[in-house]
Design a protein around this nucleic acid. Sequence first.
DNA 1: TAGGATGATTAAGT
DNA 2: ACTTAATCATCCTA
Length: 256
Amino acid sequence: VLSIRGIQEEDPPDAQLMRLDNMLLAEGVSGPEKRGRGGPMAVAATSGGCPNDNSIEHSDYRAKLSQIRQIYHSELEKYEQACSEFTTHVMNLLREQSRTRPISPKEIERMVNIIHGKFSTIQMQLKQSTCEAVMILRSRFLDARRKRRNFSKQATEVLNEYFYSHLSNPYPSEEAKEELAKKGGITVSQVSNWFGNKRIRYKKNMGKFQEEANIYAAKTAVDATNVVAQGNQANSPSTPNSDGFLTPCHTSDRKI
DNA sequence: TAGGATGATTAAGT
DNA sequence: ACTTAATCATCCTA
């Protein structure tokens, strides 16, 4: 029955296994059962994180993570138990056979090694799928896109004001970004994101933003200068444009 | 509830 | 490091 001659070693020696182990350890899946501490959680690592609503979302995340951890541990235990059971079973068989033919200790050792190898590949698969589950969980909960909130009225107001009053070159410097961030109650990264989105979307469909452009142009014109009290109200509904950063005409925006 | 608006992420270029 | 362009995932309104 036990004519095992397979010397089939796994192709990647242990590099893969090491990586999986490291990751499981880093995520707190394997290793000691830590309660309450969220040690290696690389949260808020990316840009524009919202420092406010941590911990509420996180408790959910941690709950799922500990669920994964439980499954992982119970499966692991199951495998180890099965492994040792199978080993003793084989040992018994060998002992029985040793009555009819001589069996060297070397052979026994080899057999045990083979069994352990088999079971460790199964464990490898378990670790693999556990890692996958953790990755999915991470992307599900820790991806900032999942909990996007619109900016406050104040923030969009400030951002649009700057954008439309610098339409010929809507690229705020670092200091300008910090200023805008402070005024709007958002982070500098969020300011950068906003301008990136705004520029591309404005360029892509300028017509859609004309109304908005007029509103903010009027707003800044009013509060910036009261020099000319022109009774010349309104109209000129279309053609407010051609001052864009995408048109070659440039550096001519000095309002007199 | 469909579809546009919007903030965040990613890939690729500079 | 920063931008563009595309895309994702959610919010919001008709």
